[in-house]
Write a protein that binds this DNA or RNA. Structure first.
Lengths: 346, 346
DNA sequence: GTGAAAGCGCTAACAA
DNA sequence: TTGTTAGCGCTTTCAC
């Protein structure tokens, strides 16, 4: 158990000297030991242990041009950022995958519009090998920034760009939002419900519009007044529900674009004396831990594997970085499946 | 707007050449320009812009021995990690302060016990200049790890160590948990409540025991059966509340050690037909956004400035790092004040 | 005030 | 298989 004067750090040179080999051999051993004879490997390993040697990261990065770190960019100006279990789970998945590949996670939170410059500079500074970005809104400058920085990037959620931006295929990971929504609405319809309303998410997020599209796929002739827009929060879901009830007192089903909004909607339904699912059937989206199952009645919802998506994002990026060194092309996007989880609300 | 072949990065050498000065002068300008004549400063600045020069971080770190990054270590094995708004807010505060000092945030999530090794290696690798750590439990190995790595560290929440570990003063930031708890319990007592119960947090977290101590300060003779232990989650609060009601059907007030547990307690109180605050007055702790205020009735609670604490942690660490270079001692701890926020539940 | 030169700790040709 | 050597891009004495 070596514990040299804290702050002092032995160099590879010292290890080599102690092991009686050249710096190059010591380096080889430290990096796996391929092509070095066993006795020397052992000697060097012992020297490393005795000295408590840890490679200097900066020196290594300087020559290899790889940092072993990945940026996670979260551009959500709202309070939702972390409080939203959605992000928590994605981050966990990302963290697990990166850790498994000895890669560090640098967190880049955007607090305001002025932060884009900062991010651009950071990415250009060569601090990280790649980036993971989330929750992009229409015309978000992040894709352009990462592109200019030549930074391999994988997106969480399908980026929704306008024609103004180039439609180059950017790699992303997303749930099958449209398909999941279709399944939910079909389920309500097959239950015999006649007036199925939809509480949609914000118009500028692809996950929201995709789910809305899924709703329309099944009910192409639905009255637009059966659709209300929320902001993916419980409160906004409550507001939207109240709106819908005012417009359509006789609605008998609601498909909310996420569980949080469904929980707000449920509150309002109860307040207004509607039995769920008796009078109104309710379906959510996400199957969020500690939301869907904890509701009363427990929420029927569309499940997506959020942590798995995070893992997948990281895996895609890391694979891309490897191939980069061998000169291959960008990774493809992945759409993950969704499943309808039947509980008591519909 | 320079946009050289992505991936290519001009060096300081190139800037110097373009500006017609030496690398040394270019470096001086890039680092603030102190002691360089204005015309040269301008020339170099122009070259920087034209070339789109961004300093190579690794090279700079190699010579300065500073990384400009700080690790945030979160050692919470539970699901709570990010879902808990508490962490979100601390992280936001930390992020804001670090950003303001051009310092990066490296996130180190501990997923399992085996991760301690990984963290130790990382800290020893000189990737970061300092660390911020949270949510330490009794005998948590993190303090020992950071100490051995010689890594300046500021803790979030008072570390609760046993005598087995050295009681060296480690710098931490914490709310005045004991004082806040005292204020809450005194308030209930002054309301005329006679049987004031306490839902405590986990015994191995200082914030929980400090709040319990505050309760005891005011009610030294309270029956231990009036105290139930939860796990800082809503569910555990509900369980504890049920327990307390079984033991003390005539209790008339509850002080919960955090808002989440208070929300669980409220659910049970309602289920069992107790009016709040009519029959039972309820006070929480934290004043969590989107919990306390959203409850019905809105929760009277002890507010602490969580984001401010995060900011303060970062500030303390950064200040410590500066002084380190001038050879000063570790920063002192800070206890932030709490205030009782009166709403409708008590 | 400015430039020349040394060197931070490491990896990767290239030689032996 | 092992060692020698040349940098990676930058900051920082130290002369001028």
């Amino acid at each position: 158990m070596p514990e040299p004067s804290p702050g002092f750090r032995p160099t590879l040179e010292a290890v080599a000297a102690r092991a009686g080999v050249s710096r190059a051999t010591a380096s080889r051993v430290v990096n796996g030991g391929a092509g070095v004879r066993q006795p020397l490997v052992d000697k060097v390993r012992r020297a490393v242990d005795e000295l408590g040697y840890v490679p200097n990261h900066a020196a290594r990065t300087l020559v290899t041009r790889r940092t072993g770190a990945v940026a996670v960019i979260i551009a959500e100006p709202e309070i939702r950022i972390f409080s939203d279990p959605f992000f928590s789970q994605q981050i966990r998945g990302i963290s697990k995958e990166l850790t498994a590949h000895d890669t560090q996670l640098v967190l880049l939170l955007l607090e305001g519009p002025g932060d884009y410059d900062r991010i651009a500079r950071y990415l250009a500074g060569g601090h990280v090998d790649g980036a993971l970005a989330f929750s992009l809104h229409t015309d978000d400058p992040i894709p352009e920034i990462t592109r200019r920085a030549g930074m391999p990037t994988v997106y969480g959620g399908r980026p929704s760009w306008t024609a103004a931006q180039d439609h180059q295929a950017v790699p992303y990971v997303d749930a099958d939002n449209r398909g999941g929504a279709r399944a939910a609405v079909r389920y309500l319809r097959d239950l015999g419900r006649r007036r199925i309303a939809h509480i949609a998410g914000p118009r500028d997020q692809a996950s929201a519009t995709d789910r809305l599209d899924g709703y329309r796929d099944v009910l192409p002739d639905a009255d637009p007044a059966l659709i209300a827009e929320g902001g993916f929060t419980a409160e906004s879901g409550a507001l939207a529900m109240a709106e819908l009830l005012a417009r359509y007192p006789d609605l008998d089903a609601v498909f909310a674009a996420n569980d949080l909004m469904a929980s707000g909607a449920l509150r309002v339904l109860k307040e207004q004396g509607r039995a769920v699912p008796g009078d109104v059937a309710l379906v959510g989206f996400d199957d969020m831990d500690s939301v869907a199952e904890a509701m009363d009645p427990p929420l029927t919802t569309v499940r997506q594997d959020i942590e798995g998506q995070g893992r997948l994002m990281a895996r895609l990026l890391l694979r891309g970085l490897e191939q980069d060194r061998e000169g291959a092309q960008a990774p493809a996007s992945v759409i993950t499946p969704t499943t309808l989880v039947r509980r008591a609300s519909a």
